[in-house]
Nucleic acid binder design. Sequence first.
DNA 1: GAGAGGCCCCGCCATC
DNA 2: CGGATGGCGGGGCCTC
Length: 323
Amino acid sequence: VTVLSTVAALLLPQVTPFEFGTICEVFGIDRTADGVPAMEFRVCGPVAGEPLHSTVGTDVIPPFGLDGLRGADLVAVSATHLREYPEPALDALRTAAADGATILSVCSGAFVLGAAGLLDGRPCTTHWRYVDELRERHPLARVDPDVLFVDDGNVITGAGTAAGIDACLHLVRRELGSAVVNVIARAMVVPPQRDGGQRQYVRQPVPECSSDGLAVVLDWVLEHLEVEHSVSDLARRARMSDRSFARRFVAETGTTPHRWLTLQRVQRAQRLLEDTDLGIDEVAACCGFGGGALLRHHFRNVVGVAPVDYLRTFAARASLAAG
DNA sequence: GAGAGGCCCCGCCATC
DNA sequence: CGGATGGCGGGGCCTC
């Protein structure tokens, strides 16, 4: 499990300030006073101290060179208008990935990942304006144009510009949890998770090996979300001891059984709110929450806004689209 | 919104 | 010896 104790931002010539800024804002500010774990933030360029031109006429001087990527848990690649990159930078990126770092790109930063060969055969995204170009340059990359970001495990790609915030916050949520991401989002004055119908592609936590019962049980639970499930019951269904089940579950899905279950319930509720006219209590019953209050509690926790607010903005959008 | 009870989760250890 | 398993207990989170 990655912990975001060391974050390297990789800048290449033709720096775009906004995308760089999103990375700085999420990872580069000391928020330990608010309970966010300390992160060492290194701004890295091809050569330490060598100014990089930006797209707005002011230079950025990275204090770190490519060796700053060494030992980083996360390498966040900012956007650049260039399409050809120094080979040492690509090498450093590949090495970091091989060493277990998570690699994240924002906007056109996906081209850097592509050039490093990190997108071959993998789902990813970029700014909608660059989708065709990314496909041409890297035919093996599976580019999804309709999402804010793609989480493919150790490679996360953000779509255009502000979607970098979504990608960065998603990673924070994944690694450090909802409480931490809420603190950061609140400080940035953005919703912890963007609301609305835009569905994010997050790699399904489906085990690679289908021989064990875990995948089957997960599918079964999704088919029966409306009833209660104790972790012990699920373990028995998977033909494992409670302890082993808990361990395997964390290893394969990245989260614990009960947390996963409530997340699935909330997501089901989200879809029901979008697609049906059911009331809060009815939705709660359909996805296994004991009552409306419980649904409200978890919905707010996961999505960041209350169900009614979610419903309101979503209904407004739908009527806008209809009219 | 607070409190009681139960469930979950995680570290620890013994075992295989 | 390293790795996987499963039982147990405390503390904390969830539910009502």
